[in-house]
Design a protein around this nucleic acid. Structure first.
Lengths: 191, 191
DNA sequence: ACAGCAAGCAAGTAGGTACTTGCATACGCA
DNA sequence: TGCGTATGCAAGTACCTACTTGCTTGCTGT
């Protein structure tokens, strides 16, 4: 029963490149080094196979938490943003295809949207703690700042391969985003 | 020769919904209320037709400039961001399809990427002027902040239809993004 | 009135698609 | 040894796709 995983993996690659319509069962079977019939015997249909692919690539499984109370905001956030960036970057091709097919295949909506609200919530709570403990400006627009930080992570993961010059060097990006973010919510940069 | 425009418009709608593979010539012809043969007589092939669609929806035509020197940063940027947001929001479905097809149809790369570098340049120059005239912190990371602002605009335009709760109300969004941005580069919010 | 041109219609071509069927082959386990 | 199970292979079905051809219709400008 090793075929199942080979097919899943191959289907993920092919779907990421060509989308649902372009991910023909022949291509997937060839990529997996498996007979096309095996694919149908294992998953029943192309639709079911690609649903299994998205299920397997669960995004929001174990989104890491942020500490409360905050000890070193810049370091903690930089690490968290770096992790998140890496995860989104890895899922990028699947996400792009899923989003582009939202109209035609609404069942992918859960995969495409899942996680964003959670992430927003985690960051907001962390900032609320910063304000509560007097580390952040209580009048700051935390909601908008969090939205911007998340958009920056998504934008970096999605856009960098297309227009690399519009982004800071990949190893500096998390820290620089976080520093801007902290200034926006009034956290003094020193320590 | 009114068919040409009807076809172009219909093709834009169908392509935005279903992508290249899903935008069948039958669908487009039906949507345009035109015989399928007319489509081939007018554009030659499906590929040429959809290329014409992207050409027609030119994104970076007249990106509005920002004043130098700056007079009222918050107002000027809010207006500019609002305009930009509206433009991207309008192009969203086309952009998403084009991006998702970058691997298969590299000729759409120009359409998908065009504009981002320009926009970055315009904002950077505006901030440089702010720093030069003593309105912004000269030690601020303008590059990262500009990247974040642009990502926020793209993220809002792209993501709001999917996860509306993660964004500020649509009429407040531009101003709130700009305020965060100005704090990040050290522009005093007062006047 | 008539020539030219845009467009519709019906039919066809060549190829790709998901999916099925029937049969042969190999491997593990009792 | 035999049996169930997973897989390969060849072929076929029914449908969709881009694109073509030949012919007809209707409008326009001279």
């Amino acid at each position: 029963m090793v075929s199942r995983e080979r097919i899943l993996e191959a289907a993920g690659r092919v779907y990421a490149k060509h989308g649902f319509r372009g991910a023909t069962t022949r291509l997937i079977a060839a990529e997996a080094g498996v007979n096309e019939v095996t694919l149908f015997r294992t998953f029943g249909s192309k639709g079911a196979l690609l649903e299994a692919v998205l299920d397997q690539n669960d995004f929001c499984s174990d989104v890491s938490q942020l500490p409360d109370p905050a000890v070193n905001p810049e370091e903690e956030l930089t690490g968290w943003v770096g992790e998140h960036l890496e995860r989104v970057r890895h899922l990028r091709p699947l996400l792009i295809q899923a989003i582009s097919e939202l109209d035609e295949r609404p069942e992918v909506a859960e995969f495409a949207c899942r996680g964003r609200d959670e992430v927003h919530e985690i960051l907001s709570q962390y900032c609320a703690a910063l304000q509560r403990d007097g580390h952040a400006d209580p009048s700051a627009d935390v909601f908008a700042a969090v939205t911007m930080l998340i958009s920056s992570v998504m934008g970096d993961a999605m856009g960098r391969p297309m227009v690399p010059d519009s982004f800071p060097p990949v190893d500096e990006a998390p820290r620089r985003y976080v520093r801007c973010f902290l200034r926006a919510i009034g956290v003094s940069s020193s320590r």
